[in-house]
């Protein structure tokens, strides 16, 4: 599974990255969490508000910092 955190490097994006990485580590999930700050990637995904989270190329969160519980649900962690 590939999880991308998107946004041009603002504090909200960093916070989102922290939340997602924490959830993934805690659950011991085999996922590749990357932070992509490029505009090109955001546009290719059709995302216009940061921060955003995409799982396997599909945008699941846009324009806000998700809560840990929400990330667990999105990633299908019970």
């Amino acid at each position: 599974m590939k999880i991308e955190i998107l946004g041009p490097g603002c504090t909200r994006c960093k916070e989102t990255f922290r939340v997602v990485r924490h959830v993934v580590e805690q659950a011991g999930l085999d996922a590749n969490v990357v932070k992509d700050e490029s505009i090109e990637r955001m546009m290719a995904l059709g995302l216009m508000s940061s921060p955003g989270v995409a799982v396997d190329g599909k945008v699941v969160v846009s324009g806000r910092i998700p809560k840990a519980d929400e990330v667990r649900e999105l990633l299908g962690i019970a």
Binding site: P8, C10, R12, M48, S49, S50
Partner: peptide, 10 residues
């Protein structure tokens, strides 16, 4: 919703 960090992607 708008934050100036989203001005460019927008």
């Amino acid at each position: 919703p708008f934050c100036s960090c989203s001005a460019v992607p927008l």
